[in-house]
Each structure stands twice: as structure tokens, then as C-alpha cells.
Simulated assay, not measured.
Amino acid sequence: MSDDYVEVDFGAGLRRLPRWQQVLDLTPHRDGLVPAEGPVDWSQLDLLPGCLTVDWAGPQRGVVEAIARHPTIRFLYWRDAVGDVDLRSTNLGTVQFEGPGLGNVRLPESVETLLLLDPPAAPQVEAPDEGHGLDLRYFQSGSEVLVPDGLRRTRTLWLRVGGTVSAAALSHLTDLEQLIITFDDPPGTLTELSELRWHDRLRTLRLDDAFGLDSEGLPDLPGLRRLELSGTRRTTAAVVKGRYKGSGVTVSVSGAKGESWLAEHMDNPFRDWIEDSKGFGRAAAGAYARARRAVEAIVPETPGALAAAEQGLRGLVADLSSINDKYELIDTLYREQAWDAFRALAARLQVPEQQAEEWFDSGRRF
């Protein structure tokens, strides 16, 4: 065997991998490197000295101890995390947890970035210096946000939420200097704006798709030096530019929309695709609108509902495939957005996610 490759067996059978492979998907499943159940031979990591990143899912099964024995591993992405996790013995720089089953988390001195995706209702995290040197990214599909007290001194926060969030949810963050809030759903409203006044160290504020922003409700922020609006109403952009003209605050606006555009596209998850290409984006938005109308016409749990749901949802995939055949613009990011939109429509009809995933993948050409 070439020195460039090694044979490893984590418990699911021999596999041939590049010796210096940097990203290792150890997500336990039937066809993976790690079996869905049973023991894991973590000594196999010794054969892969180039490993920097580990993907994992579910219960620990020894993964933390294994990473601790390999300080060159700097990135850990963990789906469906369960229970308490103590990472203090590792040398991880970036950690991502996804799932509501996560318990208490203890982070190592080496940590630089923490990503919490759809975390539990009251996540508990202990970080060095209460997160002062941490880049925190908190992505929550809903609007209920509770940044852990153990991260109260974080200076950088990217918050990704549904259609609305209260600024009061961030009032306990004492050292905040850079804040990004991205709204995934309409109306894109930041409520209780006056609560931002507590962040006297805030230098950069960026709001994405905040179409519901009350620009006149923004409090005076003495430390503010840059305000970015990416996706906003044209009327809001005009008010903000006028307010900060001649001040020490640099205002940057992109994606400002008029009322007619918003009336047509506000509720469409593919609205931003129009920025890449008008023809491509409008076609994709139209495909989603047709699928949504078809879904809204179906009454769940009635005879024929599942078959009708399958027809409508598969129709969206077929339309997007045809659109991509023509424009070739659906990349990895857009594919994930398409899946999110598809999954949300399926959830309206109470289609199990596994079934929805099979429909989405079957016949897809993007």
C-alpha cells in the first residue's frame, strides 16, 4: 500500500483513507467509518496525523477523550449532542453543537469560536473568562433566545433567528463589541430596541433582512462606529442614512427593497436568489409559490393527503432541477436553502422528516 494511504477500522470494517486527510466524518451510521452502535476503536486516529476536523453525532462514545489525545484536532462539529460535555482537556479552537439534547458544556482554554445551532431552551456553557475572547454564533430557528450566563463577556455575537427577536435577550452581555442579527423569516423585527442602550461598547451592528426594523427606535449608542443594513426597506435606509449623516458612524446599506417588491416576495425563502440573477431567482421564487399554494390546499390526515403532498413537494424539486439545468446557479448554499424550504413545507403537512428527505433527494439534479 502506498505511504500516502492507510487502512483504518474504527469498528465498521476496514477503509482506505489518505494518511493526511484533514476532515474526518465519524458520524455514526450504517455505511460510515463508525458503526451506529457498539465499540469504537479510537486508536485508529493515530494513523491519520493530518486530521484537523472531526464530524460527530449522538452520544459521546469516547469521542472527547480521543480528541483530547490528539491536540492537532482543532475543529469539532457535533450534531444531536446529548448530555453534558467537558472539552477542557482538548485543544479545540472551533466547536459546534447542534440539537436540543445538549446538557452543560465546558470549553477549553484554546477555544476561539462556538456555534450553537438550535440549542436547548436554557443552554449552560462554561468558557474561559466568561467567553471574553470567544466568537459566539447562536442560530435558533425560532425567536426564543437565551445566551448562556457563562458567556456574558463575549465580545462578538452572530445571532440567527426566525422572524423576530427581542434586544432584551442580550441585555446581560456586558462586553459586546460586534453584533450581527440575521432574520431567516419575515417580518425581520428587532423588538425592545431601547435595550440596546446597555451595550455602550458596541462598535459594529449589522442587521440582515430586518425588513421590520423601526429605524427611529434605535437608541443612541455612544460606541457605535459602523451600522450595516443588508436587506431592508428603502424608506428605512433613507431614515438611517439621514440620522447618521455627519456623525462618526459609517452606514452601509445593501439590498434595500421597495414596497411593491416586498409585497410580492417577502414570504418567499428564495427572494435573495433574485440578486444573483433575475431570471433564475424569479423562476425559483415562482416554483416555491406554486408549491406553497399546492401545500396550502391540502388538509393533513385526510384520505389522499400524503399522495397529494408527495406530488406537490416533488413538483418543487422537479421545477428547481429544471431551473438549475438552465442557469446552473444552485450551489451548496442554495441547495441547503432549498432543502430548508422543502422541509418547512413538508412539516406543514406533518410529513416525517425522513420521508421528506427521501422525496427531496429522489430525482434531484442540483
Rank of each mutant, 00 (worst) to 15 (best):
E216V: 11
P128I: 01
L87Y: 06
A167D: 00
W20G: 10
Q60S: 12
I298W: 07
L102R: 05
R314L: 02
S110L: 07
F280I: 07
L136M: 07
T250V: 14
G58F: 09
G279L: 08
D41F: 03
E358N: 04
V95W: 01
A338I: 06
I274G: 01
S322F: 00
C51A: 15
D25A: 09
R152F: 02
S43A: 05
S362P: 06
L115S: 10
R292I: 09
V240G: 11
L202T: 04
E192N: 15
P352I: 01
L151E: 04
D185S: 05
V351Q: 03
R282Q: 15
A127M: 02
S254F: 08
Q22W: 08
Q337D: 13
L146P: 06
A344M: 05
N91D: 09
W198D: 11
A309H: 10
S110T: 14
A127L: 04
A291C: 15
R233E: 15
D214G: 05
G304E: 03
T90N: 04
L227K: 05
G231Y: 02
A168F: 07
V295A: 03
G188H: 13
T250W: 12
I298H: 07
Q22M: 01
Q60G: 05
R152W: 00
L92F: 00
H199L: 11
R30D: 15
V8R: 02
